[in-house]
């Protein structure tokens, strides 16, 4: 009896108490590690530069980078570049998202439309989007539109592909229910197809936003007079290495903030999906 009992207790213990203890114990320490490690590395970097162990021309001291960032902010130059990039991201995001959603849902719901368009989209998807930049510049010129279109292309592909998969993967029983309960086409779309595909769509949007950020940096390096990509490229030409690092850092921050924002939007749009 004791032999059969004791393994049970052992099994029950970590399952019931383990995770709770881990959470209360590890929660703060994990956070501390997440914040502490980059700070520690920055400190090591700083010390190495001052000790002359690494070349300050290529790896300027973090303190020098932050001083440059403060200068660029107070002069307003950095804000101008950030604002230009964010605007392009914003408009490009919607320009890519809306057609991708419409097309994705139509393809997901209709086999003929899917058969007609899937090969075209899957076939053009692997083309490196940066390879399209010269063509986009040719078609849309050096103005805002070419940058917006680059972002849109980046957002379009992941969203359309994930939407098709999402809509097509909705269990057929839900369509049966909708039909049995008298939903018309629009209501089937709104109450079954869209919410059923939503988790997959959100994944597509997250991927697309990341790709959009990559593409805006590349697009701004060619034929732009402002924006973070331009700032980095221009800093290279002027050999202002600190400014390059500032640009890279800001892009990283924007990317992280975007990911947090989209995760929050996902939680708001899909209250049923809470698994945290």
């Amino acid at each position: 009896m004791t032999q059969t009992l004791s393994p049970d207790v052992k099994i029950a213990d970590p399952a019931l108490n383990g995770p709770k203890k881990k959470k209360t114990k590890k929660g703060p320490s994990e956070r501390a590690l997440a914040v502490g490690t980059p700070l520690f590395l920055l400190l090591v970097w700083e010390l190495l530069v001052h000790a002359g162990a690494i070349d300050a021309r290529f790896f300027p001291a973090p303190s020098a980078i932050f001083i440059r960032m403060a200068d660029l902010m107070s002069s307003g130059v950095l804000w101008m570049h950030i604002w230009a990039s964010l605007q392009r991201l914003f408009f490009g995001f919607w320009l890519g998202l809306v057609p991708a959603l419409l097309l994705g849902v139509m393809m997901g719901l209709s086999r003929p439309i899917r058969a007609a368009l899937q090969p075209l989209i899957s076939g053009t998807y692997p083309i490196p989007k940066s390879a399209l930049l010269p063509l986009i510049l040719l078609i849309f010129g050096l103005g805002e539109m070419s940058k917006v279109v680059m972002v849109a292309i980046g957002v379009f592909y992941p969203v359309v592909l994930n939407t098709v998969t999402g809509v097509a993967q909705v269990s057929p029983i839900y369509y049966d229910v909708a039909k049995n309960y008298g939903a018309n086409k629009w209501k089937v779309f709104r109450t079954v197809a869209i919410p059923g595909a939503m988790p997959s769509i959100m994944t597509g949007i997250e991927l697309g936003a990341g790709l959009g950020l990559i593409l805006i940096a590349i697009a701004e390096m060619m034929g732009a007079q402002e924006g973070l990509g331009f700032m980095i490229w221009n800093a290279w030409q002027l050999f202002s290495v600190e400014t390059m690092y500032v640009g890279i850092f800001i892009i990283a921050v924007i990317g992280y903030a975007l990911a947090l924002l989209l995760a929050e939007v996902g939680r708001l749009l899909m209250p049923w999906n809470r698994r945290s």
């Binding site: 029983i173 229910v177 909708a178 008298g182 018309n184 209501k187 919410p195 049923w272």
Partner: peptide, 29 residues
Amino acid sequence: PENSMVFQGDSIFPWMTVWDNAAYGLTMR
């Protein structure tokens, strides 16, 4: 409505609350 079906297995919408699920037929019409 002519008929309503209680389906085999899980057929209530995971993305709707219990209330919205129960109200589905009435809302649709």
